[in-house]
Simulated scan of single mutants.
Amino acid sequence: MISTVIFPAFFPIAAAVLGLVLGSFSNVCIHRYVHGESIVLPASHCPLCRHTLAWWENIPLISYLLLRGRCRACREAIHWRYPVVEAISGLWALLLALAFGFSPAFAVYLLFGQILIIISFIDLELFILPDVYTLPGSAAALAAAVFVLDLPWATSLAGAVVGGGAFLALQQGYKWLKGREGLGTGDIKLMVLLGALLGWQALPLVVFMAAVSALAVSLLYLRRAGSQGLQTAVPFGPFLSLGGMLYILCGPQIWHWYMGF
């Protein structure tokens, strides 16, 4: 009786802690993909001086604060990405726990959220959405949507086809008009993943939220960078990931509000 009362209240906190831990692992995946290293070996270390981290230097967020954002050995600044990824991951897990509780949906969305976080930060650094995540992720999304989330297989499959097909058409259309690439192939594969996971009905809202957030960030960047910002490419993958994550949290509510407006 006590556990049935305490566990629901405790679960969001436990989920946030789990999210922080997963965020720490996501940082490993991001950094080592960017630098072409194995995610298994060597042990966690400073990328500059190769100092092997003690256990207390690996506590998500807390270690960053204790170390004041610097390596204990060489005193060089720790990359801003580390606390940001951990904080985003922890917040994502907390919001999912509040929205879905202790459920299969929580586990599925937590996993795919980590994939989206990893590929987004890789895209920010390399302008690449790695096949090693998007291709297996798309297949896993189709299976999870059908067998765990109870999404009709036709809806999930149509989402993958419509999402990838629409962005492939945009890519080829832009290339035909401008004579150069304007949309990466990785974005097409990411849309296959999002379409399979969320279904075709979700895609218009996902793309809309991605476009609005990308426009807002671009305008802010242009304001700060001036005319030089016009020559700077902005990866779209992180914004598509954000659109997908926002849809998971509040997409159906937004649709209901819009239809009743």
Rank of each mutant, 00 (worst) to 15 (best):
G137Q: 05
L129C: 06
I188C: 09
L151G: 05
L215G: 05
C250L: 07
A54G: 06
L177Q: 12
C29A: 15
W257D: 06
A16Y: 05
Y258A: 13
A160W: 10
W92G: 01
A97L: 00
M259R: 12
Q114H: 14
F239Y: 15
C74V: 03
Q201V: 02
I188F: 04
A15W: 11
L215S: 06
S138C: 05
A225G: 05
Y221F: 15
W255T: 11
M1I: 08
A141H: 03
F106P: 01
N27I: 12
L170F: 15
Y33H: 14
L170Q: 07
L111T: 14
H79P: 03
F239E: 08
T232G: 03
R180Y: 10
A140S: 08
W255S: 12
L193C: 02
E37I: 01
F121S: 04
F112R: 15
W200N: 02
K189D: 00
A73E: 09
I118W: 10
A169M: 11
V28L: 12
V192D: 00
A87S: 13
I78Y: 08
L220C: 12
E76P: 07
K189A: 02
A93L: 02
Y221V: 13
G182Q: 05
A15N: 09
R70E: 07
G179P: 04
C46I: 03
W92N: 02
G199H: 10
F167P: 00
L157W: 08
I128P: 01
C46F: 03
G137K: 09
V146W: 13
W153D: 03
V206W: 02
L219C: 10
F100T: 07
H79R: 14
L22T: 09
V34I: 15
G159H: 13
A15F: 09
S120Q: 09
I115D: 01
Q171L: 09
Y247S: 00
A140W: 06
I118S: 07
G69E: 06
P47N: 10
R32G: 08
L53W: 07
G101D: 08
L222I: 14
R81L: 05
L197P: 00
F7M: 13
L95V: 06
V108A: 11
I59Q: 11
G243R: 12
L177N: 03
W176N: 04
F236Y: 14
F10D: 00
L96V: 02
E125N: 13
V132A: 07
